[in-house]
Every structure is written in structure tokens, then in C-alpha cells.
Design a protein around this nucleic acid. Structure first.
Length: 852
RNA sequence: GCCGGAGUGGCGAAACUGGCAGACGCGCUGGACUCAAAAUCCAGUGAGGUUCACCCCUCGUGUCGGUUCGAUUCCGACCUCCGGCACCA
């Protein structure tokens, strides 16, 4: 018997798969398709065992579906644009392209040595001109539709990365990549109008039934839909000379509290603030105050880390409901970018307004009394009461509930022309301009005569010029390349300048999954017919860190492409799995912590199959796992156990009879039951729940059972094939073992594909496990003849009955009551009732005689 | 503060629809094999009590309470941890 030698087996099968193009696919309308995708990789250098866990999960799903007869698309590629490449260039003088391509080559080798079944012929990297050309093409379609626009605005600026960040890329006020505190800059920036799809993205989320609740919640929070009303407060003229002002519009979600609005507060950036300054008694002092507020740290301002301050403008506005004047103040905590940039202050019912009012002595007027609480009084209030309740001192609306008042008052405002119902979103448009080199050039030209001009499709791609020197400072590196900047205007042919910013790399990853469907198309991003066949993605797996970034951008792109008629579906990912990270010594693996485990080191000792099996077995895919060498060792031992089992069986039974040619004994039927029960469990664990850990443990149980069975039947696992008397094993026993072993090998193949292919061949099959197909559960064989039914007395286990599987309830009851253990616990008691769940359990309810 | 998720042996975990808590693996203990070891195979392994032993009993799924014949599972309150949102009007 050969020993299990993963190195030689793995090399052999990887070679065979490559030679036979085993995982390459084409559209085939005659077969059901399955698109299995893992988030593509940023080629940072080396993959560690944490990165590859995700690829293993996807591979188990892909290999299983393939065996089940699906036409499986399982592609891989590289998210190859990005800052680390450019930083390497700055630090080590390696060109970003060289660095990126070297890393890709290394990581691809790692994945291939793990035996992940990718359709490598579809591989691409986003930094290739054949890919980013289509980023530009999509950008232009969005430009045509007003979905890409340019605007000067205050943006998040990372001083370390020297570039703009989208709101999604600012985490706790710091850069998502380098953790530096983010500042503000005023820049001309390109934006994608994702807000146009805010409602669609929110509603679409309701139908994503196979997404983790956590991710959906995060997306809902991020979109931040608020239903409220926009209300107009007329501005009362100050001096005679003042021009008539437009009314101030405020957004509120609590129009029911408007009778308690005792001030209007403007953001320092509000346009009216500027005009009020001009007409004020001391414009210079007014502006100095505004400037002081505007200069406040942006993050502090948007996260409530500043003292609430403000000043009275000296002007007043009319509350459209009370008809009374209220002062207009400037307040530093009012955000220009949310709602209308102005609010009505209701100190009694909003904590922020309350703090502001107490500080400056503004009146606090209670207009909503919460149910069942003692009446509130403005003078004695210690904190705002934000609860809904019943309206008081609110004119004709007094006595209404908050909810009813919101409807009635919104309607009243509409009728009087002083307001209307409105929905606001927290979601902002996606700023995509980046002042960096290693990204997709934005295909726009600026002409003195014609203005902003899109680059015509036929001139795409706007190629990224070769830049050799990177300082890492200053504006866009492309601005330093005169031959790139200087161009002819596509409109008039006159001299013009190219846009020198590049696109956010999240643009690349927002549609790459469609490119896999048609990766070499040079006429369009992809042929819609290919996506109609493969899409949407049936199974998508990746890290939770992309819950809002990549996954919301991709959903947005999907809808844009749907509007363009290129994609039929509205949601790109049917099922999402967020896999847990691999920790070591309680921390995420990272080079800086020095706790990374390189898969290649594990391959040398244990092989890819053991590594794969270990990472799938240790916990469900969603959960994070702690790396242990002992666990890997255990998986390796299990594979050795399988190897010896199958090898010994083949030696013991070179020819073994067919199942239907033998008479089965009860023990044989029991093994068959275990075999088919295992098929049922493993199939549903992989297909339905993706609980790969319990699938593996079911296989382990089957192996344990087989060892015991073979020992009893003298099918030489450790002993010779015949016992001392020279009597060979029973043919029926051999036949059921063969069935079990074959099912085992096939079901193990998604987890340990090399070992399984080798054993399948050893078992005498040519053509591989995919041709063999996934084993079918024979319900008849899986059905138990005898079952063990637990018997409880008052819910506590007291006995077990071994009965026929179809024993009727009254028989179970009679047997239970006859049992001596049951009798011991019911002695001296009255049996109130007996609950019988056929096939499951019996529960005898016994009461003391006194109890009624 | 709001929203979501989690809490089970020495450890990773399982229990899928309210029905035998701890499957499977790691670790540990003992045995077989061996000159010996490694490897392998077999057995045991939640805590406590009782017993020569087999049996048997009590407790036990973060805490307290509830619903139920029966709760890791459902409900209420609370504690702890993880994640998201948060001066968003």
C-alpha cells in the first residue's frame, strides 16, 4: 500500500486539470448555469491563509455545483489599480506596473497550487487597457445621462495618500486605507449620481433574501432615508432698503413640533447667511464669525465633537403655522450638505436644539406631551423630549397624535403653499476623482471654446501614459506629463487639456463580474447576451469590510447598466456570504504584526487538500477562525485515514459484486442507511446552508462507521483480507462498503479534490469525479428500520425505546408506560397525559395526586 | 443613543421546524502494536454525587423571569462582547 503523498498527487492532478482545460466553460443554453464568484484580489504581494479561505469556500461551492450538472462559471482576476502599487513606486522605485504584474504572477501560482478550480482563461487585471477602456466607456454613458457630473465642492482629503476620498472611504474620520485623519479641500471633482438610485437601492435590499441581515442593515443605515417635510419660513425684511428675501426652507422629520419652533438656524455655508451678512449692521464682524465656523474641523463638525455655538443674525422669519416671528441664527452644528442646510429649532423636542436654546436663552416651548407621562413644562425641562405623543398648544392641531399631526400638518402646509412632504437621504453622490497615477484616466477634455467635452468612443482608451518618477506629492501625477495633458478638442479641434485625475478604483470593481462573462470582447464591455446567460451571480463570497463600499457601488452599477439595456436583472448578487477572517494569536493576519501564515509553507508539509479541509472544517464560513497548527494536523490525519481505508478496500476486494447481486443483512442495510443519510446531509449542508464544517463532520462520521464496519467484517483495513480461518469477507459486505466508499470519495472531492480524484482512479474509474456526478440519496435506503425513541417523564429523559420506525403512537405510549424507569418516576403519581410525537419522542406527564 | 449579530465542555464547534444538549475535530487519559519510539488502531473524556461494578441521581447552553407536557431554540427585562450608524434635523 502506498502512503498518502499529497505532493505528488496534487502536482499530478493540477497538471491534468490544466491540460484538459477542466474548468473552462462556454454558454450552453441546454444546461442550468451557476455563476460562483469570490471577490477578486488586490495583488498586494503574497496571499496568506486568511485570504485564501474565501477562495476555498467558493471552490467547494463551484466544484459541488459542477458535479451536480450545472454549467459553472468560476472565474478569477485582479483588482490591480490602486495606491499600494504607486506607494511601492515612490518608496522602492519599482514601476507600479512591474510591481503589480510580479505580484499577480506570484499570487496566481499560490492559488494554482491550492487547486482552486478557476476558469483561468477568463482572467484579467483591471490595470490592462482592454479593461479600463470600458471603465471609460461606462463613464461616458453615465456622463451622457447626467449620472456623471463635475462640481466644485468641499471633499474629504487624505493628506497622506494625497488624494480625495469618497464618504464611504472615511472611517471614523480617518482614511480607510492608511488611517490618517482626513481633512477638507475645495476641489473640482467628478461625481456619480448614486443618489438618483437611493430609493431603488433601498427597495432592492428588501428583496435580497439571501443576503446576511447585517449587511442589509449596514446598507440601509448608509442610505439613511428620512421621511419628513420641507417647510418655508418667510424672511421678514430688516431695513427698508433690504431687497425682498426668498423664504428660508427647512427640512424636518418632526413637523408635528412646529408650534414649538422658536428659531431658524442656518448652516454657516448657507447662501442666505452671506446675504444677511451684507445687509447687517457690521458686515465685517458677521463675516468673521461665519469664517470661524466654516474653518472648524470638518470631521469634528459632522460627528458632534464640537461645542454648539451660534449667533443671532438680527433678522427674523415667520413661522408659517403660528404666524409669529422667530429669530434667525447661524449655528455651527447645522450641516450645509444635509437637507436644506437650514433647520427649525424646536428646543423642547430635540436635544441639540435644547442645548443650543439653553446656552443662548431661546424660549423652550412644549407642544407634544408624551403618553402616560406627567405634563412637561418648558421652563423646567432638563432635556428635550423626542418621543411622540399628543399635541398641545398647537392651534387647530392640538389633541392630535404625533403621527396624525404629521399627516395633517404636511397637508395643511401644502394647501397653503408653505411646504410639502419630502424624503431626504444620508447617502451622498459618489466622488470618483482621485489625484493619483495608478488608475483609469477620466475620459474628459477641457476646451476654452467648447468647455467640458467627452472623449469620443472611437478614441478610447485614453491610455495611461508611462510615468517613471513618482514624488508622491503635489497634484495629479498626470498633470506633470505635458504630452498627455495637451490634446485637441473633440468638438472644435482646437487646443485643449485633458482631465488629469484618475478614477476611484472602486469603479473597476463595480462591474468586473460582468466582464468575466465576456472577457475578450473588444467591441463593448461585454455582450449582453453572455450576461443574460450567466447573470445574476448565484453565489458571491467575500469579506464583510465591503458591506457598504463595493457592494453598494456594484448594486448601483447594475442598475445603471440595466437602464442602459445591457443587463436584464436589477440586483447583481443573488446570494451573499461574508466570510470570517482568519486570526492568529487573536489578531488579523498582517505583515506588520508578523503573524501571517503562508499557504506555501503548509503545502510543503500537509498538502493543499489538508489545508483546504482544515479551513472548511474548523467553523462555519461566516465565522472568524483562530489558526492552529494542531487543527491542520487533524485534517491531515483524517485524509490519511480516508486514504488507508480506500487503499485497503481496493486491495481486499479487487472485484466486488454489484449491490443488486447480493443479499443484504441487517448490518449491511445499516451501513447503506448511513451512506445515504450522509449524502442527504452533506448535500443540504453545502447547497442550502453553506455550512461546510458540518458537511465535513458528516463525512468524518461516515469514515468512522466504515472503519468499524470493515473491522467487524474483516475487510482488511489493518488486518489481512481474510481472517485466521481463511474465510474471505462476505460479498454483500464488500458491495455496501464499495457504495459507501465511492459516495465518500465523491463528496469529499470539493474539499480535497486532488486526493479524491486520485482515489476515484484507484477505485477503477476513468473520467474523473465531475463525470461521475454528485451521489444521489436513495430515500428508500436512507429510511431507518428501527429507531430509538427517547421517553421523558415531565420533560426529563428517563428511558429509550428501540422500536420499528413506523411504530404507531399507541404502541409507543404502551411501551413507554411499561418501562421500569418510567414506572420508577411515576410511582405514586397520577399520569395526567402522555404526549407522543411519532418517530421523535414520548413524554409522560405525571402529577402528584393532590394536584388538580 | 439607535440598528444588527453573538454568548454552549479545557479548546474549535454541533443540535436545520420547540423534542435525547455537547455530533465531529483538537487536546488529554488508558490500552493494542513495537526492543523502543513515531505513526496507526481501539476505548474513555461537561461538572458533581452514588456504587466493588453495572446502573442510577442532581446540576448544566451569559443572568433573572415568563410561555409550554417539553426551551440552547419562543417572549420580557438585564449583563457582556463584536459590527454598523450617530449633531443627518
Amino acid at each position: 500500500m502506498r502512503d498518502y503523498d499529497p505532493q505528488s498527487i496534487e502536482k499530478k492532478w493540477q497538471q491534468r486539470w490544466r491540460d484538459s482545460r477542466a474548468f473552462e466553460v462556454a454558454e450552453d443554453p441546454g444546461r442550468p448555469k451557476f455563476y460562483c464568484l469570490v471577490m477578486f484580489a488586490y495583488p498586494s504581494g503574497h496571499a496568506h491563509v486568511g485570504h485564501v479561505r474565501n477562495y476555498m469556500i467558493g471552490d467547494v461551492v463551484a466544484r459541488t455545483r459542477r458535479m451536480q450538472g450545472y454549467n459553472v462559471l468560476h472565474p478569477f482576476g485582479w483588482d490591480a489599480f490602486g495606491m499600494p502599487a504607486e506607494n511601492a513606486a515612490i518608496k522602492h522605485g519599482i514601476h507600479p506596473e512591474r510591481w503589480t504584474l510580479d505580484n499577480i504572477a506570484h499570487m496566481k501560482g499560490q492559488l494554482q497550487r491550492l487547486g482552486i478550480s478557476y476558469a483561468w482563461e477568463r482572467e484579467f487585471a483591471t490595470c490592462e487597457r482592454d479593461y479600463y477602456k470600458w471603465n471609460q466607456w461606462i463613464f461616458l454613458r453615465m456622463f451622457e445621462r447626467g449620472l456623471a457630473y463635475r462640481q466644485r465642492s468641499a471633499v474629504n482629503w487624505c493628506p497622506s495618500c494625497e488624494t480625495v476620498l469618497a464618504n464611504e472611504q472615511v472611517v471614523d474620520g480617518a482614511c480607510w486605507r492608511c488611517d490618517t485623519q482626513v481633512g477638507t479641500r475645495e476641489l473640482n471633482q467628478w461625481f456619480f449620481r448614486i443618489t438618483r438610485y437611493a430609493d431603488a437601492l433601498l427597495e432592492g435590499a428588501e428583496r435580497l433574501e439571501q443576503w446576511p441581515e447585517q449587511v442589509l442593515t449596514m446598507q440601509r443605515n448608509w442610505i439613511g432615508r428620512s421621511h419628513g417635510a420641507r417647510v418655508r419660513f418667510a424672511v421678514i425684511p430688516g431695513r427698508e432698503a433690504d431687497a425682498a428675501e426668498e423664504p428660508v426652507e427647512v427640512f424636518t422629520t418632526r413637523i408635528d413640533t412646529i408650534y414649538g419652533a422658536t428659531a431658524v438656524l442656518l448652516a454657516p455655508e448657507h447662501p442666505l447667511a452671506e446675504r444677511l451678512a451684507a445687509s447687517s449692521a457690521d458686515p465685517a464682524a458677521f463675516r468673521a464669525q461665519l469664517d470661524r465656523f466654516r474653518a472648524l474641523d470638518r470631521t469634528a463638525r459632522t460627528t458632534g465633537q464640537i461645542e454648539k455655538e451660534g449667533f443671532d443674525t438680527g433678522r427674523q422669519a415667520l413661522n408659517p403655522f403660528t404666524g409669529k416671528p422667530v429669530p434667525i441664527w447661524i449655528a455651527n452644528f447645522v450641516l450645509a450638505e444635509y437637507g436644506t442646510g437650514a433647520i427649525m429649532a424646536v428646543p423642547a423636542h430635540d436635544q441639540r436644539d435644547f442645548e443650543f436654546a439653553r446656552r443662548y436663552g431661546l424660549p423652550v416651548t412644549v407642544v407634544v406631551q408624551p403618553d402616560g407621562a406627567p405634563p412637561l413644562r418648558g421652563e423646567t425641562l432638563e432635556a428635550a423630549s423626542a418621543e411622540h405623543g399628543v399635541l398641545v398648544d398647537s392651534g387647530p392641531f392640538s389633541g392630535l397624535s404625533s403621527a396624525a399631526a404629521m399627516r395633517a400638518m404636511t397637508q395643511a402646509a401644502e394647501e397653503r403653499g408653505t411646504g410639502r412632504g419630502e424624503v431626504q437621504f444620508r447617502l451622498k453622490d459618489w466622488g470618483v476623482s482621485r489625484q493619483r497615477y495608478w488608475g483609469t484616466p477620466i475620459p474628459i477634455v477641457y476646451c476654452e471654446t467648447c468647455g467640458t467635452q467627452p472623449v469620443p468612443d472611437e478614441d478610447l482608451p485614453v491610455e495611461l501614459p508611462r510615468v517613471e518618477q513618482f514624488s508622491g506629492r503635489g497634484d495629479s501625477p498626470l498633470a506633470e506629463v505635458p504630452e498627455f495633458v495637451a490634446t485637441a478638442c473633440p468638438g472644435c479641434g482646437g487646443p485643449a487639456k485633458r482631465e488629469t485625475d484618475t478614477m476611484d478604483t472602486f469603479v473597476d470593481s463595480s462591474w468586473y463580474f460582468y466582464r468575466y462573462c465576456d472577457p475578450r470582447n473588444d467591441a463593448q464591455p461585454f455582450d449582453p447576451a453572455t450576461v443574460a446567460y450567466w447573470g445574476p451571480i448565484d453565489f458571491y463570497s467575500g469579506g464583510i469590510e465591503h458591506a457598504i463600499l463595493h457592494l453598494i457601488y456594484s448594486r448601483f452599477f447594475c442598475r445603471v447598466l440595466n437602464d442602459l439595456g445591457m443587463v436584464e436583472h436589477e440586483e447583481p448578487f443573488k446570494r451573499l456570504l461574508t466570510q470570517g477572517m482568519v486570526l492568529r494569536n487573536g489578531a488579523v493576519m498582517s505583515k506588520s504584526r508578523g503573524n501571517v501564515v503562508d499557504p506555501d509553507d503548509m503545502l510543503a508539509t500537509y498538502g493543499a487538500d489538508a489545508l483546504r479541509l482544515y479551513e472548511m472544517f474548523v467553523a462555519p464560513p461566516e465565522r472568524e477562525i483562530e489558526w492552529t497548527d494542531a487543527g491542520l494536523e487533524g485534517s491531515y490525519r483524517f485524509l490519511g485515514r480516508v486514504w488507508r481505508l480506500v487503499s485497503a478496500f481496493c486491495t481486499a476486494a479487487p472485484d466486488c459484486p454489484a449491490l443488486d447481486a447480493v443479499d443484504l443483512q441487517s448490518a449491511d442495510r445499516a451501513l447503506r442507511r448511513r451512506t445515504h443519510d450522509t449524502i442527504r446531509r452533506v448535500s443540504s449542508d453545502i447547497d442550502v446552508r453553506v455550512h461546510l464544517n458540518t458537511a465535513v463532520s458528516a463525512l468524518m462520521e461516515l469514515v468512522n462507521e466504515l472503519y468499524a464496519f470493515c473491522a467487524r467484517e474483516r475487510i482488511g483495513v489493518e488486518q489481512p483480507a481474510a481472517d485466521e480461518s481463511g474465510r474471505p469477507p462476505r460479498p454483500a459486505a464488500l458491495a455496501v462498503v464499495r457504495e459507501a466508499v465511492e459516495a465518500l470519495v465523491l463528496m469529499l472531492s470539493p474539499f480535497a479534490p486532488h486526493l479524491a480524484e486520485e482515489l476515484w482512479e484507484v477505485l477503477g474509474h476513468a473520467g474523473g469525479v465531475v463525470a461521475a456526478g454528485w451521489p444521489e440519496c436513495d430515500e428508500e435506503a436512507a429510511r431507518a428500520e428501527e429507531i430509538v425513541v427517547p421517553v421523558q417523564v415531565n420533560g426529563r429523559l428517563r428511558a429509550r425505546l428501540t422500536v420499528a420506525a413506523d411504530a404507531p403512537p399507541d404502541m409507543l405510549e404502551a411501551l413507554a408506560l411499561k418501562d421500569p424507569h418510567v414506572g420508577a418516576h411515576t410511582a405514586g403519581k397520577r399520569i395526567a397525559k402522555v404526549i407522543v410525537v411519532p418517530g421523535k419522542l414520548v413524554n409522560v406527564v405525571a402529577r402528584s395526586r393532590e394536584d388538580r
